[in-house]
């Protein structure tokens, strides 16, 4: 009797988990499958092809968007890593009360809806009469990337021996050398993780980019505008590639933070 109900519980548990996973990943699998489908129709499978992927890389719009995406992501990541790391060091040196205040202030943008961030940034750019374009998009990305860098650098600083800076001074470093030769190398793993996170966030952002850019479109914006005209299988291929890239980045981030816990 007991054994039987245990068996039932196990089946129930298993199928529940399967259902959740299917719900999450089946759509992505379908998208992958359709990106290899010869037919334009979503209803019938007529054979395997890589044509959509080939077409993708012949589409000048998409190539341009890829360039914009990478340019924005690389510049925004570099800038936010520098600003975020220095900011984290500054916060680390603050008194408890100020630190808590800054921590809250820098966490709010992360939880804020992208819509709010996007609209408010756009309003600000318009208000100070900066024409919308690639530059404003980069600035917006830097703004939403910084909290991710802070979030991964601060714990490294707090784990660090509190006397590291003084030890470097003691051994003959001038204050700036102590920063570059001791503090930064000590917290480097956190900086790299923060940079990867920021890069991932930049890569797939749509809402904030949409509000802060003008004619320069990134990949997410291309997918969105293509969808309005009816989705072509090239978009499946593009989405599939973006999924793979971001998955790879997130796996690296997870592996790194996993290593640090060990």
């Amino acid at each position: 009797m007991i054994r039987k109900s245990r068996g039932a519980a196990r089946v129930l548990k298993g199928s529940y988990l399967a259902l959740v996973l299917a719900f999450l990943y089946l759509p992505i699998l379908v998208m992958f499958a359709l990106s290899f489908n010869e037919s334009v129709s979503r209803a019938s499978w007529t054979g395997f092809t890589l044509d959509w992927y080939v077409q993708l890389f012949h589409d000048q719009n998409i190539i341009n968007a890829l360039k914009v995406t990478l340019e924005v992501a690389v510049i925004a990541t570099a800038a936010s890593v520098v600003i975020g790391t220095l900011g984290a060091i500054g916060m680390y040196c603050m008194k408890q009360g100020w630190f808590n205040l800054m921590a809250v202030l820098s966490n709010i943008p992360m939880t804020m809806p992208d819509m709010v961030t996007g609209v408010s940034l756009m309003l600000m750019f318009v208000f100070v009469k900066v024409p919308l374009g690639k530059a404003t998009m980069i600035m917006a990305h830097i703004a939403f990337d910084i909290p991710y860098v802070l979030l991964s650098v601060l714990p490294r600083l707090q784990m660090m021996n509190p006397n590291i800076y003084e030890a470097a001074l003691d051994l003959g470093c001038k204050p700036r050398q102590a920063l570059t030769k001791a503090i930064v190398p000590e917290i480097a793993p956190g900086i790299v993780t923060g940079g990867l996170l920021a890069f991932t966030m930049s890569l797939d952002d749509f809402v904030i980019s949409y509000f802060t850019s003008n004619t320069d479109q990134n990949l997410a914006m291309i997918v969105y505008s293509a969808a309005r005209l009816g989705v072509k299988p090239t978009m499946y291929a593009l989405s599939a590639l973006m999924f793979v890239c971001i998955l790879a980045l997130l796996l690296i981030v997870n592996r790194r933070s996993g290593l640090e816990i060990l």
Binding site: N161, P162, N163, I164, E166, A167, A168, L169, D170, L171, G172, C173, K174, A182, P185, E186, A188
Partner: peptide, 21 residues
């Protein structure tokens, strides 16, 4: 006078070794 100009060195309480080296 700042620490890096003193002919004094310190052994810190919890050693403060550089873990990246």
């Amino acid at each position: 006078v700042p620490p890096y100009k003193r002919r004094i060195n310190t052994v810190f309480q919890k050693y403060a070794l550089f873990s990246h080296l």
